[in-house]
Design a binder for these strands. Structure first.
Lengths: 338, 338
DNA sequence: AATCGTACCTGAATCGATTCAGTATCCGTC
DNA sequence: GACGGATACTGAATCGATTCAGGTACGATT
């Protein structure tokens, strides 16, 4: 009934607890005879190591925490999956926390993870939590920022160049003949949103043509908010319509797509071109297949986890910023006007 | 540098460690004076409870494990989110593991969770792991099956009536005039797949009309496999086409939708009706908005977690099966023929 | 004044794995 | 045959929070 402890195993195998521990942790220092006796005892008793005791004494743990900004978004799903994949390869489990862009929940999860003494934390930050992360680091828990560049270089980060992505997206819109561009995105507390907008503005300014960029703000990066934004655009007099929409992510873009239907007629791409960001799996499956800026989501997760593990084994490592370039994926939603 | 322990807090507050522990766990038995002194000390030292030590002594933990069948599928994302939401309300974190329909990974995660001494396990099982779960229960770790009915009643479960769902889907297809129905789904190791097919067959047999149900097997419930299945159907002589497709889930259905385009002409719904299962967020946003059997995914997760917590506080509780009914959501993809 | 009850507090024992100083054994060397 | 060194093993101390038997102080009761 009660779970077997290392003492039971030692007794059953006729060795000391120290030897059992050595079999488990440094088999090189134990005779083959002892190893097999211990293994047989473990098998017989169904012994499973108590991680709490191990953690308490040794200080190391076999979990990492991942604080995710927006669990609704398949993009983060893919990132988590990449991280989790790499983690399972090292026998490590992922503690998962979804903040839903809520400062209180963000703090809650970091507290929880600190209590758990996770090996490290992956986080796509919402608020400015560097001080909190500094404290974690002091306690031996490193953090890697995901999908967010660490401006001050205090932490390692794995991200995609959002400014460049915004720029590439809008340059593509300009190249296909669009001049009045609406940026649909928000809230602006999210760094990626402002970065993508900044990139969009750079593209507009550097263009030889005169290009307008207006902002249609949303309160959340969701399909519903995107649809509302689309409807808001359509409610204006026709001559005030933009001829292209750049949505801060694909969820918004999918929403916009639903919103840009008038009298059963789809305005995309003929009247209004549409491009999103992330290239989630469903972008290609949309009513009008969506052009998007692809992020290598799985690779981001894997890479972040790998860097985190390196930092746990060598805390003196200098933080490094890994930046992937987004890739323009052109589909029907930004086809040229007929 | 080194994290403060309960001893440091006790010293700083001028009380014993026992009192500090009582402040944290049974504030009712401590004077207001001591409570505030201890809280001030905690604040001053930035003390965070060491969960490993607490777990070791008290045996209770503040994590639950969730083993998910298919992390790619937004349906599970929604379920996890519901569970995680409920968990955070109780100050509990969710250990997340994705099996990708891999027996080895399933076992890996259960081992990991046992080492962690999680409070309980939510699992959408792939293989038959009742014996493994029995052992966990013996060690005081209850399990709740998610999205899978516990046939023998050994464990609590929260699921949706897949047989009924399959039946309702096909009854709907029959009601809209379809007679030759292709079931796209697989692998058949997944219980939900066989259940939904069984339901489809019941509907066909109980119909007054003569209705055919054929099976188009896929090797995974993914968009790509769905598209391949769609293409396979189209490669047959026209007279052998079905007039409706029931896909085992929405990912497959979205794939089928992409596959059912010939010469740029969309066959859905005119030549072939299409219905999926789950009603994921993207079903409504598809090229042809997808009819689907809606599962209350968030509620499933919440409910499962709540039951799990009840069972941890009272291990003698009799397992109970919670079955939600799916709901038919009709959209354009099953519109009647023009 | 003695007794009892209540409220509050103390501090040592405890959980189970790891670690490390110390012991035992054996082999080779001079 | 004494010594050095390598190898394998032992068992007590340790990590930090919890728990609980026992102690103190003080007011109420008889």
């Amino acid at each position: 009934m009660a779970a077997a402890s290392i003492r039971d195993v030692a007794q059953h195998a006729g060795v000391s607890v120290g030897t059992v521990s050595n079999v488990l942790n440094r088999p090189g220092e134990v005779s083959a005879e002892s190893i097999s006796r211990v293994h047989r005892a473990i098998e017989a008793l169904g012994y499973v190591r108590n991680d709490a005791a191990r953690k308490l004494r040794a200080g190391t743990s076999t979990t990492v925490g991942f604080v995710v900004l927006d669990g609704q978004n398949p993009f983060f799903g893919d990132v988590v999956r990449g991280a989790e994949d790499e983690a399972s390869r090292h026998g490590i489990a992922v503690l998962y926390g979804n903040t839903d862009e809520d400062v209180a929940r963000e703090r809650l999860y970091l507290d929880l993870f600190e209590e758990q003494q996770v090996r490290g934390v992956l986080i796509s930050p919402y608020s400015d939590i560097n001080p909190r992360l500094e404290r974690l680091r002091e306690r031996g828990i490193p953090a890697v920022l995901v999908d967010r560049f660490s401006g001050d270089g205090r932490f390692s980060s794995v991200s995609v160049d959002s400014v460049m992505g915004g720029r590439m997206a809008v340059e593509h819109l300009i190249a296909t003949g669009r001049r009045r561009i609406a940026f649909v995105g928000g809230p602006f507390e999210i760094r990626q949103v402002t970065d993508r907008l900044a990139g969009a503005r750079v593209a507009a300014e550097q263009s030889l043509e005169h290009v307008d960029v207006e902002v249609v703000a949303t309160s959340a990066p969701t399909v519903a908010e995107g649809a509302a934004a689309g409807a808001r655009i359509l409610s204006r007099p026709r001559r005030d319509w933009p001829d292209a929409v750049f949505a801060a992510n694909d969820l918004l873009a999918l929403g916009v797509l639903q919103g840009l239907i008038v009298d059963g007629r789809m305005l995309v791409p003929n009247e209004i071109a549409l491009i999103g960001f992330d290239d989630i799996a469903f972008a290609a499956a949309a009513a009008v297949p969506l052009s998007s800026m692809r992020q290598p989501s799985g690779v981001i997760g894997r890479t972040a986890l790998r860097i985190l593990l390196e930092e746990t084994s060598d805390p003196e490592l200098i933080p490094r910023q890994t930046v992937f370039q987004p890739e323009l994926v052109v589909r029907a939603s930004t086809a040229s006007r007929r």
